[in-house]
């Protein structure tokens, strides 16, 4: 014990305890994998998990993605308990799934649910690349197909953030079949007039690129994201040469005509909200919308929806001075685009 009267010692101790406080706490900091800079974790939410030093896009888990995308407290998870039962009895597979679930706090590689974006209700799916590379097995395929069917029944717009290495090897051929299943679900949804915005994030490859992710009405990507079908290593092995710089990047895909836009992470929510509005979806705030014509309660069938909307449209038209031209047109589902969408306040998974 130092002499308490020794002011010099006292000062030294104080300095040391201060140093202690300032010492980097690994739990509160993250190292940027690109520039190795140390980043305070607290700050990451405000920079949208983009490195403030070099602009590198850090991996975003599904839950964080939802927090950055949908309105506060508006997200409700659907089908969160759906998991597969290891169809191939694959060695060590179940342990791997369990470890991934612990890490990501979701039971499978996709998080699905409903939430609001600037007040506009939407069905939202987010693949988590930290969960066995975001690979699509039976459960991921089923959750995505259910989400699409849910959006279809409720007339919700569909937004899926992809981040995946493709089909899940450990579930074999059944993983491959999920490509057919999800592609078919999107196609049906599209035929019924639903809007699907596909957001490709790093990395989107293999069976996910070759199914639902490429079938968006609008396809967006984050800057620098790896997007392709065959993995870069497979191509290099096949060709026996190094790939050119920037090959299979979002910028490369944009240039080749496979994306509508590259959107920075901080601007994504705004872009999504803008696109939803441009397609006739409105926030649930009271407005002169079809809300007034709809009965309360949930789980209205498609037919009821259609009737309701037709009634709403007719009402709109009768109020419209310029209704003559329209009245010649028979009721057509495609007209629905012009009518504000709305959903039930309390969605549930059927």
């Amino acid at each position: 014990m130092a002499n308490p009267l020794n002011a010099f010692e006292k000062r030294k101790q104080a300095l040391q305890s201060l140093k202690q406080l300032r010492r980097p706490n690994p739990d509160k900091q993250k190292t940027c994998p690109a520039c190795q800079a140390t980043i305070e974790k607290k700050k990451l939410m405000s920079t949208f998990y983009v490195c403030p030093h070099c602009g590198h896009y850090l991996t975003l888990g599904a839950k964080r993605r939802v927090r950055l995308t949908v309105d506060k407290d508006s997200f409700k998870e659907l089908g969160g308990g759906i998991v597969s039962t290891d169809p191939l009895d694959f060695p060590e597979y179940q342990e791997k799934v369990r470890a991934a679930a612990e890490k990501t706090k979701i039971h499978e590689a996709v998080l699905t649910g409903v939430g609001r974006i600037d007040g506009i209700p939407a069905a939202v799916g987010v693949l988590d690349s930290r969960f066995l590379m975001g690979s699509m097995g039976v459960a991921v395929g089923d959750k995505i197909a259910r989400l699409i069917e849910y959006a279809d029944r409720r007339d919700l717009p569909l937004i899926i953030f992809s981040a995946s290495g493709g089909a899940r090897m450990q579930e074999g051929i059944l993983s491959l079949m999920q490509m057919a299943k999800t592609a078919a679900a999107v196609e049906q949804f599209s035929e019924n007039g639903g809007l699907f915005i596909s957001v490709l994030t790093h990395p989107t490859t293999g069976g996910v690129t070759a199914s639902f992710a490429s079938l968006g009405d609008v396809i967006l990507a984050e800057p620098g994201a790896l997007i392709g079908f065959a993995g870069p290593r497979v191509i290099e092995q096949t060709l026996g040469e190094k790939l050119p710089e920037g090959f299979q990047s979002a910028e490369f895909m944009l240039e080749h005509g496979f994306l509508d836009a590259i959107v920075e992470r901080k601007d994504l929510k705004k872009a999504l909200s803008q696109l939803l509005k441009l397609h006739g979806y409105r926030s649930q705030a009271p407005s002169r919308s079809i809300t007034n014509f709809l009965p309360g309660g949930k789980d209205r069938s498609k037919e009821q929806n259609f009737t309701d909307r037709t009634a709403a449209r007719d009402a709109d038209r009768s109020a419209d001075a310029d209704a003559d031209a329209d009245s010649a047109v028979s009721a057509d589902a495609s007209d629905d685009r012009f009518i504000a969408k709305q959903i039930d306040p309390e969605p549930d998974l059927k």
């Binding site: 490509m179 057919a180 592609a183 078919a184 999107v186 196609e187 049906q188 035929e191 490859t205 690129t209 070759a210 199914s211 639902f212 992710a213 490429s214 079938l215 997007i227 392709g228 079908f229 065959a230 497979v234 191509i235 096949t238 060709l239 790939l243 050119p244 090959f247 299979q248 490369f252 080749h256 005509g257 496979f258």
Partner: peptide, 24 residues
């Protein structure tokens, strides 16, 4: 085919659309 040109021409898009078309 995993090749440079195949990727540039949208292998993923081509397969996805084939599946979508076949479903309908």
């Amino acid at each position: 085919y995993p090749g440079l040109e195949a990727e540039a021409h949208g292998q993923g898009d081509a397969i996805a659309r084939s599946l979508a078309r076949m479903s309908r």
